[in-house]
Design a protein around this nucleic acid. Structure first.
Lengths: 340, 340
DNA sequence: AGTTAGCTTGGGAGCGCTCTCAGAGGGGGA
DNA sequence: TCCCCCTCTGAGAGCGCTCCCAAGCTAACT
């Protein structure tokens, strides 16, 4: 029984030094073919793998990217949004040969302990933060700790240098105009929470769209909290204003709204047309199938991971804010009839 | 500008040695009050946090638990199962003051690179593996690498020493008996894939339940692949056998089956009663609301994390297989009428 | 007063790697 | 022939921590 399996031991087997083995492992140039061959043979024979912690300590790089999702509990359960985001970030992290660490805030009092864990030196190289609510203290902590970070979503102030977001405002505008083009005139909105930038942007874009179409919202604005129940409740309130078209700011709220329409004895799209946001409800899951503004969540996650990696590697010096376009996917709930 | 912030530097500020600071940081006994006080003051003043990689290297413990989910893509998108599992594991990991690393296999060719990353020394202390398919090579790799692991689900052979699972068999048995008690006689099943232990167990339990009730399945067994589409297709095939009651082996397949029942012009529960498995469909999402066998996924994730931690800490020497009970949650889709 | 035990403290060694530098060896150009 | 440069290699130092041992000190008991 010799040493534990480490660079030195592999070097002994291959008749070279620690340094040469390190060069081979890291794919560096300036290693002779014969030496590289013997080293690779020794590695293959022993199944040697470099020790991640030792590498991190010496190089000051861990190869771990963090994904921070505050206040996840309420939504992660039944909103596929975060699943997709995680999937996108995970895929890109794998492609970068890095590891993804997940930090979910269960409740407020977890926040401090988790933040302090995130900013621990030698644990993660940087983090992706989903800035769901405005004024989130997480970002300030990250900046103070000098930890590289990329925000998913639009940061609420100039505090973040790097962000990846979907075009909430543009998408909401399209939704409003589409409802108009479907012949609706009394159009309302169920907005996401107004303490989120996504909520504000979708509301703003919606109002812009209506205004450009020369239609007044007439106060038909109700706020939900991402859940189906809140979507249903908001729709009930909108019905009192006599709506014939509704833009629901998220799929889950749209599903709730759809159920509420039915529960009220009305038909969708005949009585109330519905346009959703997210594009996460699979075909066939609802009837009528939801017309929705589709945001490329998976790509957002991917891009955020890649951007973070670039920032960590120092490849990016200026700030960068990526906005993915959102697109209209027409299905049944808006009652749209194409001219033929 | 002195040193980088480390134990030595804090020690200098507090007038003690590296060792004493280390003891304070780790909450060890045998430190005088005055020394501890000065050290804590220095830590508070500087915002010092121990370097995770250095600690890992020296102690051979990283404080990171891995969660491995093979073949996640297909299901993670729209099945809340994995979201809940992640949530449960994450919550417990936080409670243990550890960090959760997520390893999702995107596709088969990711598998090798991810496995080798997982077994990297100095990265994670141990892993939770969701053993979705039988004969999965991941477990063998983990064993060879001598990496502590806990399986979520029932391992398909005696290969795992530690596992956490829900009582699939018992739950399926209850489902079958419940359909019988609802007066159904031509009862079929939509099983999860038979290359998963969950699929086998649910099928087995279902058949047992029918047998004990003195009813023959009569070949009304169709296999799905967890998706709604497969559930719908399986139900169509079952209809040809003339079923009046169906046990769907997962919520997503049940939703698909429900849609297929409607599409066939039949009513649920009047024409075909339906019992699901998972208990993940929120009330109001389907009409009729699904009667389901509920498995405590969140608790499974929690328990797996805690068990893994115990294994890593060497607190458990014998093997341990935890099975959580599953319960029947009666709603509308089974057509059950309580005696009053 | 002597002895012992217990508490407290400091320092050495070492975890396995990276990074830098110096030096050996060899080929090509003047 | 000499010199320079390029390629390849090895060794030292150090990353920040934990672990262990020795030593100093105090208190308690004989």
């Amino acid at each position: 029984m010799g040493q534990r399996l480490n660079l030195e031991e592999i070097g002994r087997m291959a008749g070279v030094s620690r340094s040469t083995v390190s060069r081979v492992v890291n794919g560096e140039p300036n290693v002779s073919n014969s030496a590289a061959k013997r080293v690779k043979a020794a590695i293959a024979e022993t199944g040697y793998r470099p020790h991640a912690a030792a590498r991190s300590l010496a190089s000051n790089r861990t190869g771990v990217l963090g994904l921070v999702i505050p206040s996840a509990v309420a939504t992660l359960f039944d909103d596929p949004y975060f699943g997709r985001l995680i999937l996108g970030a995970s895929g890109e992290t794998n492609a970068l040969d890095a590891t993804l660490a997940l930090f979910l805030f269960e409740q407020d009092n977890d926040e401090n302990s988790i933040i302090s864990r995130v900013v621990n030196p030698g644990l993660v190289d940087g983090v992706i933060v989903t800035a769901t609510t405005m004024g989130d203290p997480v970002i300030e902590h990250l900046r103070q700790a000098n930890m590289p970070f990329v925000v998913v979503g639009r940061p609420d102030d100039g505090s973040a240098s790097y962000s990846v977001d979907a075009d909430n405002r543009g998408g909401a505008k399209i939704a409003a105009k589409h409802l108009v083009s479907c012949g609706r005139t009394r159009i309302g909105i169920i907005t996401p929470p107004s303490n989120t930038t996504a909520g504000l942007d979708r509301r703003l874009g919606f109002l812009e769209g209506l205004e450009e179409a020369g239609i007044d919202a007439g106060g038909r604005i109700e706020e939900g909290n991402w859940t189906e129940a809140s979507g249903a409740a908001a729709l009930m309130r909108l019905l009192e204003s006599g709506v014939d078209g509704v833009f629901a700011g998220s799929d889950r709220m749209a599903v709730g709204a759809l159920n509420a329409i039915r529960a009220a004895g009305l038909r969708c799209p005949e009585d109330v047309a519905l346009v959703s946001f997210d594009g996460l409800v699979p075909a066939g899951q609802t009837s009528p199938q939801l017309t929705s503004i589709v945001q490329p969540i998976n790509e957002v996650g991917q891009r955020a991971a890649r951007l973070l990696k670039s920032v960590i590697d120092g490849e990016i010096t200026t700030s960068e804010h990526v906005v993915f376009p959102t697109t209209l996917a027409i299905a049944e709930s808006c009652g749209f009839k194409a001219m033929t």
